[in-house]
Simulated scan of single mutants.
Amino acid sequence: MSTMLLSIKPEYAKVILEGKKQYEFRKIKPKEYVNHIILYASSPQKQVVGEAVIDEILEGTPKEIWEITKSAAGITRKLFFSYYAGKDKAVAYKLKDVVTYKVPKELSDYGISQAPQSFIYLDRTETVL
């Protein structure tokens, strides 16, 4: 199992953990073998708040991806298309088995000293609950 730690704005991390946002949108696709994410709620929260399994990675034009994900995107159409403005490609991680940490963790718990701009790969073989 390969894992990446994603920096996500706290408001989006919250709706992922609540199950209202079942897709995480990015502009680039990760390495093929990544199937697990750790959710880092960025500033002002600055804590690792949960994790999820990547069920599927979708790629297509922003319009195609919106049509597939809109019912569980957890964001507005306007925000979605604003994020992909000027881009020909959109990537969506379909999330499942989302776990909220009862006690948020620190980046140092993962051997990381500073938050990644977007994401970093972690070398992990087990889930930390």
Rank of each mutant, 00 (worst) to 15 (best):
M1W: 08
S2L: 03
S2D: 09
T3S: 07
M4Y: 00
M4V: 12
M4F: 02
L5T: 13
L6E: 10
S7T: 00
I8V: 10
I8Y: 12
K9Q: 12
P10K: 06
P10G: 08
P10Y: 04
Y12W: 14
A13Q: 02
A13R: 15
A13D: 15
K14A: 08
K14P: 11
V15F: 00
I16V: 14
G19S: 12
G19D: 14
G19M: 10
G19T: 11
Y23N: 03
E24P: 04
F25S: 10
R26N: 08
R26T: 11
K29V: 13
K29W: 07
P30K: 00
P30I: 00
P30Y: 06
P30W: 02
N35W: 00
N35S: 14
H36L: 11
I37Y: 02
I38L: 00
L39F: 03
S42W: 07
S42K: 07
S43Y: 10
Q45N: 11
Q45A: 10
Q45V: 11
G50F: 04
E51G: 02
A52Y: 02
I54A: 08
I54V: 12
I54M: 07
D55A: 08
E56G: 05
G60M: 02
G60A: 04
T61I: 04
P62A: 01
I65Y: 00
W66E: 12
E67V: 00
K70L: 11
K70T: 05
G74K: 00
T76M: 02
T76C: 09
R77Y: 04
L79G: 01
L79D: 09
F81C: 08
S82M: 09
A85W: 02
A85V: 04
K87R: 07
V91K: 01
V91G: 10
K96H: 10
D97T: 12
V98I: 15
V98P: 01
T100V: 08
T100Y: 13
P104K: 11
P104E: 14
P104M: 11
K105N: 01
E106R: 14
Y110A: 03
G111D: 14
G111L: 04
G111W: 06
S113R: 13
A115T: 10
S118N: 15
F119V: 03
I120F: 06
L122T: 05
L122Y: 13
D123K: 02
D123Q: 04
R124G: 08
T125W: 08
E126Y: 09
E126L: 01
T127N: 06
